[in-house]
Design a protein around this nucleic acid. Structure first.
Length: 573
RNA sequence: GCCCUCGUAGCUCAGUUGGAUAGAGCGGCGGUUUCCUAAACCGUAGGCCACAGGUUCGAAUCCUGUCGAGGGCACCA
């Protein structure tokens, strides 16, 4: 609908430019963009195209708008147009043509608002990617939910999406995890064991639990008898598996599954990282150099040393970045380049990375590296998710691993429920820090927007149950006369339903899944408001049929949106 | 010192990628249930869009600077 109107106007704009002679190339006509006015009287769609044209053509916006309306060929759905304010063109649609959307929503069902495109672009959406060294915390959870919903929204708009988890199973922290596990295994197996947990090891109870699980399947004496490096290799692999099983379990509790779990370790083992460094060296994109000490940060152990540096400054980064540490082993950055290069080779046209805001400084160097390797700019597209401040009754919950007050994501999900956690994480833009209050999220009242939306869905179900009891049988949608739907509340619902595909489009193209949540709250509000003013189950059959169709369509869109967000749509509450 | 994000009602946040009179929820105050679910609805009060300049027909939105909050800045991931 919107696109149809836009192209009609676009043709008129080109015709107008043609009238003004050769110096205005219609091919360079400004693009017509329609918006939905905030104010009812301004119509269903509004267009500001006359204003930029005024600048180009040197005449008054209102005159240009007038001429445009003479030139334009509207589709039949347009009822009337007018010129308002400084030169806005306001478009009013036929009410019946608007309401005809209801039958289409019912016909399309789950597909309404979606785009199916077998040839759509392919995208790898990478999210969570928490280190496999312990349980996920609440901050991970926000990234997880945002990434999952974003993937769903993109998939709904024709992107062929693959969800991917990058396991950081290489590097020093895995050594610490392994050492922690071995310590607990010895503690559990050796009588009179009284050693202190070594510095730097992970103290959490989950390590003890993991050690117990490994011991259940592996003989301690046999492990003890192994050569140390052989045992370390085995234990690190077992430990990672153990942690990942726990993380997968926690993700499943949130309703999240991945298509691919990608192990960083395999990049090292296969020689991909070393091969990449060699290749970049041959291409002259890597050189041996020394970095200055970092500014504004106390670094006692700074040693000027020659390192292999990637020329990321050639692609907009602040400084060149090291690919190898002093001991010669590759940096995390080196592996991450190899990882993204691998995604590129796997044929993904887009790479979406959902990262915590604390990785913000990392974006430009990865993009620089990818540009150097593939020539493509702005890849990966990085969504930075801000921190979550966990509170209980307004008081901050201290997050200290050592003090034992660490609150895991799983505990939060178990306490407040999957739907409340997901929806709360999805109601705000990712750029803003989020206060998540455990007590508020648990409450089943109006402070909790999940229930507001779910209640709207359940309420429609209740209406339809009642209608059935009263003997109202819904006619096929296409046969329902929608002309009784004339009240302000009904028209508002129709307008919101009409806007739904645009909401999804924007959420997908801007990588902003929160727009879906916002639109759902608005739709729910419209439904509640309608409910209190008009009865669906009435004696007049025509009115009852029209209103039933309306609420069925609302229910459908609510369910569609909630599904994208990974939240249930209950039939009763 | 440099980079990134944010600053909108008492609180939590929207604001359609520069548009028309800046909107919701919570909280405050006042109403609504013989009636399809009151987990709801209606009304009302509440604003120097952090501050100061600039860009233009037009700025909460874009640019510069200041202040404030959070994050980041080689050899961690």
């Amino acid at each position: 609908m919107k696109q149809q109107l836009e192209s009609s106007l676009q043709l008129a704009v080109e015709a107008l430019l043609a009238e003004h002679g050769a110096e205005h190339d219609p091919a360079h006509a400004p693009k017509v963009l329609l918006t939905r006015p905030k104010i009812r009287e301004h119509g269903d769609y509004s267009c500001n195209i006359a204003m930029p044209l005024a600048g180009i053509l040197g005449s008054k916006p209102r005159d240009i708008a007038t001429r445009l309306l003479e030139l334009v060929q509207w589709p039949p759905s347009v009822n009337k147009t007018d010129i308002a304010g400084p030169g806005f063109i306001n478009i009013h649609l036929n009410e019946t043509s608007e309401a005809s959307i209801l039958a289409r929503i019912v016909a399309q069902g789950r597909e309404y608002g979606r785009v199916t495109d077998a040839d759509g672009p392919s995208a790898c959406v990478e999210f969570v990617s928490a280190n496999p060294t312990g349980p996920m915390h609440v901050g991970h959870g926000r990234g997880a939910v945002v990434g999952d919903a974003l993937a769903s929204v993109m998939a709904a708009r024709g992107v062929r999406v693959s969800r991917e988890y990058y396991i950081n199973d290489a590097g020093a922290q895995i050594g610490k995890l392994t050492a922690s596990m071995w310590f607990r295994m010895r503690e559990l197996s050796i009588a009179g064991f009284d050693e202190e947990l070594p510095e730097g090891c992970y103290p959490g109870d989950y390590v003890v639990e993991g050690a117990r699980q490994i011991l259940a399947e592996h003989d301690f004496a046999a492990l003890e008898a192994m050569p140390e490096d052989e045992r370390d290799a085995l234990l690190s692999s077992l430990s990672i598996d153990c942690m990942m099983a726990m993380i997968r379990d926690d993700l499943a509790a949130l309703g999240i599954r991945f298509n691919t779990y990608f192990s960083e370790r395999t990049l090292h083992d296969s020689g991909a990282v070393q091969g990449l460094i060699k290749q970049l060296r041959n291409d002259g994109k890597v050189y041996l150099g020394t970095l200055p000490p970092p500014m504004g940060k106390e670094v006692d152990d700074y040693v000027p040393v020659e390192q292999w540096l990637f020329r990321t400054t050639d692609y907009g980064d602040d400084v060149d970045r090291p690919l190898a540490k002093q001991d010669g082993t590759p940096t995390y950055f080196a592996a991450d380049i190899a990882y993204h290069a691998d995604k590129h080779q796997r044929g993904f046209e887009r790479m979406i990375d959902v990262w915590g805001a604390d990785h913000g400084g990392y974006v430009s160097r990865v993009q620089a590296a990818m540009q150097a390797l593939t020539g493509r700019k702005q890849q990966p597209e990085v969504v930075l998710v801000q921190m979550v401040n966990l509170t209980r009754d307004g008081k901050p919950v201290r997050m200290s691993k050592r003090a034992g007050t660490f609150v895991t994501l799983r505990e939060v999900v178990d306490e407040v429920g999957k739907d409340a956690v997901r929806f709360n994480f999805l109601t705000r833009r990712v750029e803003s820090q989020l206060d998540f209050d455990l007590e508020t999220a648990k409450q089943k009242n109006d402070e909790n927007p999940v229930y507001y939306v779910q209640y709207a869905h359940a309420r429609v179900c209740a209406i339809l149950r009642k209608a059935g009891e009263e003997g109202h049988v819904a006619l096929p949608a296409a046969e329902v006369d929608v002309s009784p739907l004339t009240s302000e509340e009904e028209r508002r619902l129709v307008r919101d339903l009409l806007a739904w595909p645009e909401v999804l489009e924007q959420a997908a193209s801007r990588l902003e899944p929160y727009r879906v949540a916002t639109a759902l709250m608005q739709l729910a509000q419209g439904l509640h408001s309608f409910y209190h003013k008009h009865r669906v189950v009435v004696d007049d059959a025509a009115t009852a049929q029209a209103r039933m169709l309306l609420v069925i369509a609302v229910k459908q869109v609510l369910a569609n949106g909630l599904e994208l967000l990974g939240v249930d749509s209950p039939d009763r509450m």
